[in-house]
């Protein structure tokens, strides 16, 4: 029997398949009742309307069953709200390697583009092209292929890319 925490932590995000739900920061807890053996997993959505949640719940149950924990309960919590700050360093590196520019520092109310935290004058930080590394990039659309992404374009290598927008 595999440790339930280990099994759940390895579940990948169905929309961004290079990153696990643990690295994405949406896995909040995995608890196993020693008496009954029942596993309770607590997750939180990135966006309230995230359509991947049902698939994620099913994937968690499947991973637990395969690890020898068929009796599992998946709970969804909304507080504290997820923000891109929950994405781990390893997760950010994996996003970048997959051509998705990782999020910048978050801001309070979520007004894009991102600015350097703590400065008096809001300073727009460049999103680096994950393909060629250039900072000469521009936003094409504030909304991208999934709720958590924006569409950007590199002016140096001309490639479009996804940017996981700071929330």
């Amino acid at each position: 029997m595999v440790d339930p925490r280990e099994a759940v932590a390895a579940v990948v995000d169905p929309e961004i398949r290079v990153i696990t739900i643990d690295e994405l920061g949406i896995l909040r807890a995995v608890d196993r009742d020693a008496a009954t053996g029942r596993v309770t997993v607590t997750i939180t959505p990135t966006y309230t309307g995230c359509p991947a949640m049902d698939v994620i719940r099913a994937d968690i149950r499947r991973a637990l069953a395969a690890a020898g924990h068929p009796d599992a309960d998946v709970r969804t919590v909304y507080s504290p709200a997820w923000s891109t700050d929950w994405i781990s360093t390893a997760g950010r590196a994996k996003l970048a390697a997959a051509g998705i520019a990782p999020p910048l520092a978050t801001r309070d109310a979520g007004t894009a583009p991102a600015t350097r935290a703590g400065t008096v004058v809001p300073l727009t930080l460049a999103v680096r092209c994950p393909l060629c590394g250039s900072a000469e990039t521009e936003q094409v659309s504030r909304f991208g292929s999934t709720a958590c992404k924006a569409l950007w374009r590199c002016r140096a290598c001309r490639e479009p890319f996804d940017h996981l927008k700071a929330l």
Binding site: Y47, Y78, A81, S83, A109, G110, T111, A112, F143
Partner: peptide
Amino acid sequence: AAIGAKARKESAYHRDH
């Protein structure tokens, strides 16, 4: 409170757009 904390960030994007 939890719903508000979650939804306000999304609303900020809607308003900007």
